[in-house]
Amino acid sequence: MAQFNLNINGNSMNVDVDPNTPLLWVLRDHLDLVGTKFGCGIAQCGACTVHVDGEAVRSCSYPVSVIEDKKVVTIEGLSETGDHPVQKAWLEHDVPQCGYCQSGQIMSAAALLKKNPTPNDEDIANAMNGNICRCGTYTRIKAAVKTASQSL
């Protein structure tokens, strides 16, 4: 066990966990931030996507010990009231079905748009290919990313 001081969604938070614990489980079990989901545990599905210093990372494969003073943003911290352009576009296109993959999808999309505010189809596919949606909402995801891009 070891103490870690983490910067999550702009707040400083302390946890006492095994240094190998993936950020995913620190968020979910220790900090009660359960919007970040568990899908595969091996960086293959994207359900656990969060931002670490603005980069989309798979939190299931990101040990808490390497975070240090990097800034972590989760779906809960993407916006105060759910009004990030990506969230708004998701609602406009009524993207979710079961919804389980969607916080990961939204975090991947938000990271993409930050780097590339006007992505084409190929850019979108490249950035979103790590996020599986078992319900098959990909065409809506693409449309929503484009809508969000226009409102940036």
Partner: peptide
């Protein structure tokens, strides 16, 4: 007449909704 998913806002803001989120 299409109505939006009543849980849309909860989903896109990552609110606990699934059994896995329960504590």
């Amino acid at each position: 007449n299409s109505k939006k998913n009543v849980d849309g806002i909860k989903i896109v803001t990552g609110k606990p909704m699934f059994a896995l989120d329960h504590k």
